[in-house]
């Protein structure tokens, strides 16, 4: 295996803000590489530098052996880019959007027409072929933007949070297509703030926070860590005086903290914990007024993986499917 992407001590500043503090990693050819981090971590900045939209302040990067700042032309012909926002031309139909992409990457007209039909089919957009992009749904726009990045059959595909802000059916279609492309040899660089997404489709995942890569790990380890730190939210009509007190009744909970009147419990076995909570309720007569299992928090997974207590982490979406 050879490296499709190499990143060496890359840094970027916006004014005084250090958006990237010298990050390094490699992505192998044929890999689905996840770039996981909360909002503002530096994911989009990284993608923009690698795809030639931004210039770094320091460090270097190559794609398919070509330096992204000095000799980007060769690389640009072979990469596909799906931006964070679905940047389609609203005045153009799906067909015209795709054909424009095709000429921008020198795909011959006849071949382009065939690929347009194929892509519209796999994204379930056939009946929107001549609809103005302004008039189609968010999910369809995202799929159209992805199709536009595929028209020249790139060797490396960059996707910046492709499943954020779209409906669940679209999320599944997008994930299926990512896997399918990868099985045909396309290297995938995928950013996400969703731990679950990173762990189900990526071969390796880099965790980035505040412009620094904290860990690069396998999704198995990510999943295991996430499993150990699942959280359960519970609220009683009479809140317990101290969190430590209730922990005596709940041996399956490893940690308890308060958020408003709600109690947040960390556990590796939510099912057992639920039974213990019911038992507690019966014994003490406290009535359960709220119960929820929101999944692991990014902070908990992070601590579990690295053993470091971060100074502060931005909020991160950890819902199971979104």
């Amino acid at each position: 295996m050879s490296a499709a992407i190499t990143v060496n001590n890359l840094s970027k500043k916006y004014g005084t803000l250090e958006a990237l503090k010298g990050i390094s990693f490699e992505v192998q050819s044929g890999e689905i590489f996840g770039f996981l981090g909360p909002n503002g971590a530096g994911k989009t900045t990284t993608v923009n530098i690698l795809t030639g939209i931004l210039r770094p302040n320091g460090g270097s990067a190559t794609i398919l052996g070509h330096d992204v700042t000095k000799d980007s032309y060769q690389a640009k012909e072979r990469i596909g880019v799906v931006h964070e926002v679905s940047n389609v031309y609203p005045e153009y139909s799906a067909y015209n959007n795709l054909m424009f992409s095709a000429v921008l990457y020198s795909v011959p007209r006849k071949i382009a027409r065939e690929r347009v039909d194929y892509l519209l089919d796999i994204f379930f957009l056939r009946d929107k072929k001549y609809a103005k992009a302004r008039k189609i749904s968010q999910g369809m726009k995202r799929k159209l933007a992805i199709a536009m990045a595929l028209i020249h059959q790139p060797q490396v595909l960059f996707l910046d949070e492709p499943t954020t802000g779209v409906d669940i059916a679209t999320v599944f279609t997008i994930r299926e297509i990512i896997k399918e492309l990868n099985s045909r040899g396309v290297t995938i660089f995928l950013t996400t703030h969703n731990i679950n997404e990173a762990s189900i489709i990526c071969h390796r995942v880099a965790i980035i926070n505040k412009g620094e890569i904290i860990a690069i790990d396998t999704p198995e380890n990510l999943r295991k860590a996430a499993k150990r730190v699942q959280s359960v939210e519970v609220e009683f009509d009479v809140p317990p005086a101290k969190e430590a007190e209730i922990l005596e009744y709940l041996p399956s909970a490893s940690k308890a903290s308060k958020r408003g009147d709600k109690l947040i419990l960390t556990t590796d076995d939510p099912h057992r914990l639920m039974e213990e909570i019911l038992e507690y309720s019966r014994k003490t007569g406290c009535v359960i007024t709220h119960f929820n299992t929101p999944g692991p928090s990014f902070e908990d997974v992070f601590i579990e993986l690295t053993g470091i207590k971060p100074k502060s982490l931005s909020a991160m979406d950890v819902s199971r499917d979104g």
Partner: peptide, 14 residues
Amino acid sequence: MTKTFARYLCAPLS
């Protein structure tokens, strides 16, 4: 506004 401008920057033309 629509960020379609970014398309030129990552396309293979100077």
